[in-house]
Design a protein around this nucleic acid. Structure first.
Length: 488
RNA sequence: CGGGGUGUGGCGCAGCCCGGUAGCGCGCUACGUUCGGGACGUAGAGGCCGGAGGUUCAAAUCCUCUCACCCCGACCA
């Protein structure tokens, strides 16, 4: 009714926008391309942060914080890096405002021009490696395993809430190592952390892979990624982990004395995931009734809705259940707002994606049962009151698992192989999804395929089997299939 | 940045072509009846029509500029 959302079949983009707005996740702000993350959206981000942070700490990383501003000269020290980011940087040129002489408001004070302009970080490699130079002298200072939670700014032409905004929140890890092997190992370790976070917490299956040269991070030797498939058949890059080789060490002159008492350049990695994950979460699970959240990331896992008229027995039953659930570490909310009717609450909590809803009315209590509804399948069951806490704990696990299996099944059904460019195009113009196809390994061919079909190579999967074949575009020999898709 | 579209109470829209000082639905407030899937009745509150300038006796309506958002494209780790 009042909050109805566009159906996915009618207009997927509009459906996405409706979900973000009507589930109370985010709004557009007064600033172009920037969003206001509302409490419900931010609570989900906090859940993601908590878990990721724990995983980073468990793998030996520590948090630190580097400045928002980067001297312009730093950015140009690594040639490919600056080329990659120069087109989308916000620049600070002055440090003072003054009243306009004509009284029309405040204007930039022309006498307050900065000697060196500052860039609002699009990513922090440069300022961090400039700092690492002072921190690293010897192999004993390595490895340096640092993460920071921060905001960054990339002046995007076209923005979508969560998926691509001019300012976004993320974490960026920046590590320094004594050997190439160790740095590569770190890059892969983090990729595994990201993949298990995506699957175990977001219930979003991902493919681990390596990017082609075209899609590589500006300044990296190799970019590893996790790629997910959204409900509309488009791919989403959900996280990246870069092996930076010695590029940044060379650019910022970061050397260490190795065990043989020789100066050597430090080996680097960087890796990040952002609030974009929230967009991925939405487009993996949600439906035409609103958001669907995996229990492990739901700010509220269970909501209890009393069916009026309010009675002390109902309140008692709700309190007892809440206590039992909280004792199991389950987050629960009792929605006893008397100004709203139950049907309205049902719809509202479905919109917000609460995984489990418990309805308690006198009729139920007389029969010693509770009505328990799950968000993922919309099924309702009546469960004996005493068994409810255990039932719900189990149900949350089941929902988590069901969401993952459902998403995996979808991805399985929407991953196809193509052996000719015609087959390739038929798939993309039809159902979409991932297309596994042979490619001759050149950037020219990759770009030509992109030009013709709008699809890009999402990655070369890590566990990719070798297979003789011929490139779908050029017919040249190929040793393995790579994963193509149209992407966000 | 190019093409197209839209900005009118909190939200969704009509009115604009053929200028005359704003209307509908939802939501909101109060009271009552209700309450097991987005309740109903009655009475109310709320908008200088995105912003600036211009034309005119008169502008939501016509003109110019500007800002924001949406779609497509270009671009984008």
């Amino acid at each position: 009714m009042a909050k109805e959302i566009t159906s996915r079949s009618e207009d997927y983009s509009q459906w996405y926008n409706d979900i973000v707005r009507k589930a109370g996740m985010a709004d557009h702000s007064a600033v172009r391309g920037c969003m206001v993350i509302k409490p419900h959206g931010f609570a989900i981000w906090e859940k993601m942060q908590q878990q990721l942070d724990r995983m980073f700490k468990d793998t030996g990383h520590v948090n630190a914080y580097f400045p928002l501003f980067i001297p312009k000269s730093f950015l140009s020290k690594e040639a490919e890096h600056v080329e990659g980011f120069a087109k989308e940087c916000a620049v600070v040129t002055h440090h003072r405002l003054m009243n306009a002489p004509d009284g029309s408001g405040v204007v930039v004070d022309p006498t307050a021009k900065l000697e060196e302009e500052l860039i609002v970080r699009p990513t922090s490699e440069t300022i961090i490696w400039n700092t690492y130079r002072d921190w690293i002298q010897s192999y004993r200072d390595l490895p340096l395993l640092i993460n920071q939670w921060a905001n960054v700014v990339r002046w995007e032409m076209r923005t979508r809430l969560f998926l691509r905004t001019a300012e976004f929140l993320w974490q960026e890890g920046h590590t320094a190592h004594a050997s190439r092997e160790e740095a590569i190992e770190e890059t892969r370790l983090i990729l595994d952390v990201y993949a298990s976070f995506a699957e175990e917490y977001m219930a979003m299956p991902v493919i681990k892979g390596v990017k082609t040269a075209n899609e590589r991070f500006a300044g990296a030797e190799d970019t590893y990624c996790i790629e997910a498939l959204m409900q509309d058949g488009k791919a989403l890059q959900a996280g990246t982990s870069h092996f930076l080789g010695q590029n940044f060490a060379r650019a910022f002159d970061v050397n260490f004395l190795n065990k043989e008492n020789q100066q050597e350049l430090v080996w680097a990695t960087s890796w990040g995931v952002s609030t974009r994950l929230i967009g991925g979460l939405i487009m993996t699970h949600s439906d035409d009734d609103g958001l669907v959240l995996p229990p492990k990331l739901a700010p509220t896992q269970v909501v209890i809705v009393p069916i009026p008229k309010p009675a002390p027995e109902i309140d008692d039953a709700a309190q007892t259940l809440m206590k039992a659930l909280r004792a199991q570490g389950i987050s629960v909310k009792y929605d006893n707002d008397e100004t709203k009717r139950p049907g309205f609450k049902f719809a509202e909590h479905e919109m917000q994606g609460v995984p489990v809803r418990v309805g308690i009315g006198m009729r139920d209590l007389e029969q010693g049962q509770l009505e328990i509804a799950r968000r993922d399948t919309k099924e309702k069951s009546f469960v004996p009151k005493d068994g409810a806490p255990a039932y719900i704990a189990n149900l949350l696990d089941e929902i988590q698992e069901n969401l993952l299996q459902r998403a995996k099944a979808y991805r399985g059904e929407n991953t196809r192989t193509a052996n000719t460019i015609e087959e390739f195009e038929t798939i993309l113009d039809g159902p979409g999804g991932f297309v596994s196809a042979h490619w001759d390994g050149t950037s020219e061919t990759e770009l030509a395929i992109k030009e013709r079909t709008k699809a890009t190579i999402r990655c070369i999967p890590l566990d990719n089997p070798l297979e003789q074949g011929t490139c779908i575009l050029t017919g040249k020999p190929s040793t393995q299939r790579v994963l193509f898709a149209r992407a966000y």
